[in-house]
């Protein structure tokens, strides 16, 4: 075997390698950018779905923002409490109220409950229907039921029920807030998962009109306000609003609401009721029996 040719080949390749390695080493020294090692560590912790739910351009953007103090440690909606705790550990901060938040549609006006203004023919999207005087349903505040939220959900957590209302699968929902952004009626709200009492109506019409529009509307009767022992619910602008600072989730308001516009989730009952009523796989609570 020709030793000389081997030496030449190895030498030239090695020389090239040496030359470029030297170049890279110099570049590495001169051009080194001080990168906060915490950014890489956060990148390793977060799920990396690049969903944009945090409001930053991708996961790298979020990690960078956390280190720079622009984002909170619990800012990643996909990762949830686990990830928040890990990020907090990396950043050396405490997290407060890192409870998982899930989306919930604040309307119960499905096809069964609501009055119609006409037959809607047009593009099957809530945004399009909003432009055409609000689609099929008469309520100006209620759910249009055409599923923009379901289409926007990156995690397949929202289904439109047969009654044309979005049903959120709490297990799949990451609280990214995409549905909140997309709903033209602003009906998707993010709530901590422990919330048990909600006013599921956004209708600001005066009671008399609200009664005609929907069987599950808030008619601003004020019964809940009177019943609440903690002064946590008030009718503001013809709509009952819960002050969650004060609310103890006792559910008394829900029991008196004549239109069952307030839901009160009581743990054990939920599963059975749902399975029986809607036939949906894992829906959220229906309201009062």
């Amino acid at each position: 075997m020709d030793l000389q040719s081997i030496l030449i080949a190895a030498g030239s390749m090695g020389g090239l390698g040496l030359f470029f390695a030297a170049g890279l080493a110099i570049a590495n020294k001169k051009l080194q950018v001080e990168e906060d090692p915490r950014v890489t560590r956060i990148m390793e912790v977060i799920p990396g779905a690049n969903c944009g739910g945090c409001g930053f351009p991708g996961c790298a953007g979020f990690a960078d923002a956390v280190v720079k103090g622009k984002a909170k440690a619990d800012g990643c909606p996909v990762g949830g409490a686990d990830v928040a705790a890990k990020i907090a550990a990396i950043m050396g901060v405490e997290i407060s109220g890192g409870e998982r938040r899930v989306a919930r549609c604040m309307c119960q006006g499905g096809l069964e409950e609501i009055a119609y203004q006409g037959e809607y023919l047009g593009a099957l999207s809530c945004i399009a229907a909003t432009l055409v005087s609000g689609g099929k349903k008469l309520c100006e505040f209620g759910c249009l039921g055409l599923g923009d939220c379901a289409a926007a959900c990156p995690f397949d957590a929202i289904k439109i029920s047969a009654n044309r209302l979005p049903v959120v699968d709490n297990d799949k929902c990451t609280g990214c807030g995409k549905c909140v952004d997309v709903c033209p009626r602003d009906l998707m709200h993010l709530h901590p998962i422990s919330y048990k009492v909600r006013v599921l109506c956004q209708n600001h019409d005066p009671g008399r009109y609200a009664t005609k529009v929907c069987t599950r509307s808030c008619i601003a009767c004020g019964l809940c306000e009177k019943k609440c022992p903690f002064d946590a619910i008030h009718v503001i602008d013809n709509l009952a609003v819960i002050d969650y600072e004060k609310c103890k989730h006792c559910g008394l308001c829900a029991t008196v609401c004549p239109n069952q516009a307030i839901e009160h989730i009581r743990k054990k009952k939920i599963v059975k009721e749902d399975a029986a009523a809607a036939g949906e796989k894992t829906a959220v609570s229906a309201a009062q029996p």
């Binding site: 409950e113 119609y116 809607y120 036939g279």
Partner: peptide, 30 residues
């Protein structure tokens, strides 16, 4: 886009009021 709405017509109406709101001839929103 959504699951078949076949069930909705067969389901018993929940209450009287909702039935009253339905009219056979509706205006068309388009």
């Amino acid at each position: 886009t959504a699951p078949a709405p076949a069930a909705e017509t067969e389901k018993p109406k929940k209450n009287l009021r909702s039935r009253l709101f339905r009219s056979e001839r509706m205006t068309i929103v388009e």
